[in-house]
């Protein structure tokens, strides 16, 4: 087993670790790499921050009561609903 990862390889595995369980071998290699590499440790923290932050951004929009369904959009949707109701009758 080749133990040493390059930063390029490590960064890819770090991103994958957010999406799936890593293989035992990748986990060991990554753990060793992060132990000796400050830059990739920072990258790892950046990706976790990114996930946390994008969820906050989403919540901000979701809770922003100033954002409303535009009136013209509402009229369009209402009209579509009416048409559909007639079709169903």
């Amino acid at each position: 087993m080749k133990l040493m990862l390059t930063c390029k390889q490590a960064s890819k595995i770090i991103s994958q670790s957010l999406d799936m369980p890593l293989s035992w071998s990748d986990r060991m290699k990554l753990r060793f790499h992060l132990f000796i590499c400050n830059a990739c440790s920072r990258f790892n923290r950046q990706l976790h921050l990114l996930r946390l932050a994008v969820n906050r951004v989403t919540q901000l929009t979701e809770n922003d009561s100033a954002i409303k369904l535009p009136v013209d959009a509402k009229i369009r949707i209402s009209a579509t609903i009416e048409t559909k109701m007639h079709e169903l009758k």
Partner: peptide, 21 residues
């Protein structure tokens, strides 16, 4: 496609900085 971030030996061209919320 990752050439913008790493050199030919796989090292960071610019090391990631500390980012915090």
């Amino acid at each position: 496609s990752m050439d913008d971030f790493f050199d030919a030996t796989g090292h960071w061209l610019e090391k990631p900085q500390a980012l915090e919320m």
